[in-house]
Amino acid sequence: MAARIVNEFTKGFWKEIAPLRFALGICPALAVSTKVESALGMGFAVVFVLCMSNVLVSAVRNIVPDKVRIAVFISIIATGVVIVELVMQAYFYPLFLVLGIWIPLIVVNCVVLGRAEAFARKNPVLLSLSDGLGMGLGFTLSLVVISSIREILGDGTWLGMMVLPEAYPGFGFLLRPPGAFVIFGLVLGIMNVISARLENKTA
């Protein structure tokens, strides 16, 4: 059992890392990845919603009739999202202003509903929690990777700290929307090559 919990947790980081492997949840990954700070804030918001929805969906999995399960899942997820909205407004207001509409949009993040439907409704609570935590942190990791590239090359900073020499002119293209698509595409391409190499080795 313990081994399975660990396994469900770690798969979210590489084997099934949602945005980079399946191109799921890419909208927020593109939108809030101009700065590492906002990427982290978004990531943790998703971790919370994902854990909460996975645990609750798994807890009610045997009493919810199949026909209305999507409506129930959506209600649970939306409740989690509103809690995040309120708490973020109350205690992290500047972050709330930066993330803006992307906080309510977590409700339609395919990763969240996807895990409820594909995993939590068939598995016990503890496994679902570990799956949610892993998937959520994997999502956060993807956002941090993309935003690190964009912030370092675009602005010369990382988490607000100067990392490139003062004279670095910055590469504004990366901070604008088209740059997000190009960087994301390139990162996905590199992921494909690395995993193809790894599979060749083990085969």
Binding site: P65, S75, I76, I83, L86, Q89, Y91
Partner: peptide
Amino acid sequence: VLTIVAAVCAGGLAAVKMVTMEQIEYQ
């Protein structure tokens, strides 16, 4: 099931709203 879920969700949120309301206004 739907009624119970909706009621629990709305009730929970109203509670969270009550707790955070003053703090949100201040922020």
